[in-house]
Design a protein around this nucleic acid. Structure first.
Lengths: 126, 126
DNA sequence: TCAATAGTTCAAGGATCATTGAACAAAGGA
DNA sequence: TCCTTTGTTCAATGATCCTTGAACTATTGA
């Protein structure tokens, strides 16, 4: 990356921006999965069940620009982590309530896409 | 009203829908003002500082359809109330964290709101 | 009945959103 | 070096969003 990835400072994180970022099924799922994974970082590739490579890149950028997650390059991968501390200091109790409430993950989308990709032999779904 | 206003049942309120509804400055302001007004109902007209009559009608409908507020016709007015109980049962702690975090918002102008129908309690606009 | 009040509906316009495929870039391993 | 892995960027597309003004409905009070 010639340009470092933009991350808003903690005090610049805006509530409407965070709400907008989380007001999308795919992004809410990313956050819920990240939260349930504890403090461990995850890669974009671990969310491929939620959408295409391109779509995920788009959604991850949205979450990063809103200040919800941190994205750190690591080799060819990107390590994603929740900005728990920053979010808690900015909006106390908010993240916990979201993660708790998002507990029931919707059904896996893109089932037909998964089938199509499987028949074409392009994608291995773990 | 020929058609009763649609309100989703409590158990049908969706988190992404609520987040999307609140991910807009105008609507977040409406909720923050409603919350700070205690349990008292407010009319659309009391939010005119936040936008035009038409825009408010649009935003109020969004909040209602997402299950965030209840809208009850009363003469030529509409009485708006937060669906506190339903939101709390569905997403514990969420509304409180939102309202607390949205605390630093442009306060409504101190207008005489002639809520004669309401108990003339102590309205504390700090 | 007439007029004022309170809010809705409609069509329009421009802005932003989410998705896709193709092309690209960066890093690591053989 | 070549190839694979991992993810980004771009242009295009259709969908949805937010605002506006004009016209409209419904209710209330004179």
């Amino acid at each position: 990356m010639t340009h470092p990835l933009f991350h808003p400072d903690a005090e610049e994180i805006s509530l409407p921006a965070v709400l907008t970022a989380l007001g999308d099924e795919t992004r809410l799922n990313i956050i819920a999965i990240l939260a349930r994974n504890g403090e461990r970082a995850m890669t974009c590739g671990q969310f491929l069940e939620l959408g295409s490579k391109t779509a995920l890149s788009y959604h991850v950028a949205k979450l990063r620009e809103a200040g919800v997650i941190n994205v750190r390059p690591d080799g060819t991968k990107r390590l994603l982590t929740l900005r728990r501390i920053d979010l808690e200091s900015r909006f106390p109790g908010f993240l916990d309530s979201i993660v708790t409430s998002a507990g029931t993950l919707p059904l896996p989308k893109h089932q037909e896409m998964a089938d199509a990709a499987e028949t074409s032999g392009e994608t291995e779904w773990t």
